[in-house]
Write a protein that binds this DNA or RNA. Structure first.
Length: 638
RNA sequence: GCCCACGUAGCUCAGGGGUAGAGCACUCCCUUGGUAAGGGAGAGGUCAAGAGUUCAAUUCUCUUCGUGGGCACCA
């Protein structure tokens, strides 16, 4: 006679064993309808699970996080059910949940296309409406293998063979379909209403590129149509912000096939880029960095010494001149060490912070290219800090401060840190790793930013911190990084004379704040949806004339603005003011000045800000002052 | 690199075995108009590149290049 204790402490007695659905029903009809699973003493189970002993029960509703997860998982099975009805020859591989939905990898000779997805989705809806019971069956390994042999599912058998002996194997049946899963799952397909198959793609079996490529069908699934629609709206919003689309519309940059993966920056885009670079230059200069510039081509010898030749030759561009093999640099560090190595360094020179806006080329695989976000030629806001082991912590703290300030001034207020420690294969003594790891953790914690750990994910040459910023629609982007390096300085012969008058190898901190400027530009464009803060805006002011007789006056104002460094254009075209305002608004110019006869007579301008229909009549000098004030970069403001 | 889809005017896209069309943008003319599209006319394309099939290819087939979505990769 089980006694059930609910989360609020209330208890219920039953005179026979009951399942979660029945418990939910005993509380209320509405709750029963929304019940997809339950916790029995903290263990997540199917809603059909029988409870026969006294237990603590928590009902999982379709809107709970666990509930949505279960719905997504069950949707993957529903997909399998529909797919096998249409394509009985399909072999099912693996169908897990992912953020916002699920996917299923299948092996099917016929290539599915978007149209096929529509018909599969329709079949899924039909099946869901049949309200099939989803029945769980625990089986032994033999039976599981037998069933999947009969069903000709080799991938499932492969999975079964890797399940540890002590783990139970559960099958889930709805009507004729059977899938294997840890569960839990919904008890009826009626819970599966708000889903959509979104795309079909290739994916390697078990994620290994040596294996067969399967077809992966992606779907999204939510508890309600409203949530589904919200997510579709989000996708639409992301599409509107797509930097490739905005790059074209705002005349920022283009790509063409003669230089795949390399950017042609147009005047507008380059203006933002330079403003951004200048800003970072000022910030790091204040932070005690020296800026340098190293060659684009370096002899193969150096890359052999650094170890890059062995590991990355596939992705490096090479050239031969005068029988000498040269490589276009894929990174800046070896060059920086060459500068460090000039002359004899003392411990008094450390920490030495060496920065370069270094242009690097990497031959990324063709399939990896993606607008500005993954390119073959990029510029890093790169720097290397040569320091002693003792200085790692203080340098990391300074760096975190700098990074935080820069992100915030660029409009990103939500930042998080990922810490990665020693991997299995590594260089350097445990003693030095201990110290370095502790330094990074202390420094990261001192920032007060959210902090996560990624065990064993450090590089072979040292632990690292990765920095993520979160954009206007909540997406996280990894940009900044700080990597401790115990390896390369020694390999390339860097040393300094310590207080003890003997030679030591410095530690090197690789660090970047924006990462690749190209990629960061892409992120900025999407974050601001092309409406940049006015200090970054490629065109800050558009002067528009109403009638041609104010042209002289308007030209004079344009000249004044330009002479003060305000990026100004003038539009004296034979068009109506409505037309001009519309166009400059589309181009996201932050300040539009309208000049007609009245303004000319009074030596004023009408100022209209982007996104507002209001106008402000100002004396032209006052307007200039105002705009100068509002276009000062954040680091130069009082 | 792998899988699927796609590549037509500057942009967004329609079309389809008999060598092309729309809207916007562009040029010119009329209009001098007060805060998100005034009217008219015109110009603009080797239909990604190469090969094949065909009397005939932008259209069908193949190859290459590029783009998109994923996978793999990302020092």
């Amino acid at each position: 006679m089980p006694k059930i204790t609910l989360p609020d402490g209330a208890t219920k007695d039953f005179n026979k064993s009951v399942d979660i659905d029945e418990i939910a029903l005993s509380i209320g009809k509405g709750l029963a309808k929304a019940t997809v699973a339950g916790f029995v003493n903290e263990e997540l189970v199917d809603a059909s699970e029988k409870v026969s002993k006294d237990s603590r029960i928590k009902i999982v509703k379709n809107t709970d996080d666990e509930g949505i997860e279960i719905i997504r998982h069950s949707c993957a099975h529903l997909f399998g059910h529909a797919l096998k009805q249409i394509y009985p020859e399909a072999k099912m591989a693996i169908g897990p949940t992912i953020e916002n939905g699920f996917y299923y990898d299948i092996d099917l000779p016929k290539s599915l296309n978007e149209k096929d997805l529509v018909s599969i989705e329709e079949r899924m809806k039909e099946l869901a409406s049949k309200d099939y019971r989803v029945i769980r069956e625990v089986v032994d390994r033999k039976k599981a293998i037998k069933i999947f042999e009969e069903r000709e599912e080799p991938y499932k058998i492969e999975i079964i063979n890797e399940i540890p002996d002590d783990e139970i194997i559960a099958l889930y049946h709805h009507n004729e379909y059977v899938d294997m899963c840890r569960g839990p799952h919904v008890t009826s397909t009626r819970h599966l209403r708000s889903f959509k198959l979104t795309k079909v793609a290739g994916a390697y079996w078990r994620g290994r590129s040596k294996n067969k490529m399967l077809q992966r069908i992606y779907g999204i699934a939510w508890a309600s149509d409203k949530d589904l629609k919200n997510h579709l709206d989000f996708l639409e919003e992301a599409e509107k912000r797509d930097h490739r689309k905005l790059g074209r519309e705002l005349d920022l940059f283009h790509f063409q096939e003669e230089a795949a993966g390399m950017v042609f920056w147009h005047s507008n885009g380059w203006s933002i880029y330079r403003e951004l670079e200048d800003y970072v230059r000022r910030r790091i200069s204040k932070a005690g960095y020296q800026e340098i510039k190293t060659p684009q081509l370096l002899d193969k010898k150096l890359w052999e010494e650094s170890g890059h030749w062995d590991k990355y030759i596939e992705n490096m561009y090479t050239t031969v001149v005068d029988e000498r093999e040269l490589m276009i640099k894929p990174m800046n560090c070896p060059g920086h060490i060459q500068i460090f190595n000039q002359g004899i360094k003392s411990y008094k020179d450390l920490p030495l912070r060496m920065a370069e806006f270094g242009s690097c080329h990497r031959h990324e695989p063709s399939g990896a290219l993606h607008g500005l976000l993954r390119v073959r030629n990029f510029v890093q806001d790169d720097a290397h800090i040569f320091c002693t082991e003792e200085q790692i912590e203080s340098e990391t703290i300074l760096f975190c401060d700098l990074l935080k300030g820069i992100y915030q001034e660029l409009g990103f207020n939500e930042i998080s840190i990922m810490y990665a420690d020693r991997p299995e294969v590594r260089v350097g003594s445990d003693d030095i790793w201990d110290k370095a790891e502790e330094s990074l953790i202390n420094a990261a914690k001192a920032t007060g930013l959210p902090f996560n750990e990624n065990k064993g994910d450090g590089t072979f040459y040292g632990p690292k911190l990765d920095f993520y910023l979160h954009d206007a629609i909540g997406r996280a982007w990894q940009c900044g990084t700080l990597q401790v390096d115990f390896n390369m300085p020694g390999r390339l012969g860097a040393s300094y004379i310590g207080e003890d008058n003997s030679k030591h190898i410095p530690v090197m901190l690789h660090r970047a704040i924006l990462g690749s400027l190209e990629r960061f530009m892409g992120i900025l464009i999407e974050h601001y949806e092309g409406r940049f803060p006015s200090w970054l805006s490629p065109i800050q002011v558009a002067i528009t004339t109403i009638v041609s007789e104010v042209e002289d006056y308007s030209n004079k104002i344009e000249e004044e603005f330009r002479s003060k460094g305000i990026r100004t254009i003038i539009d004296t075209r034979n068009e109506k003011i409505n037309y001009k305002i519309r166009e400059h608004s589309h181009n996201k110019v932050p300040f539009i000045l309208v000049i007609g006869k009245k303004e000319k007579e009074n030596n004023t301008v009408a100022l209209r800000r982007l996104g507002s229909a209001d106008q402000e009549i100002l004396h032209s000098n006052d307007c200039l002052k105002k705009i100068i004030n509002e276009t000062i970069p954040p680091d130069l403001k009082e």
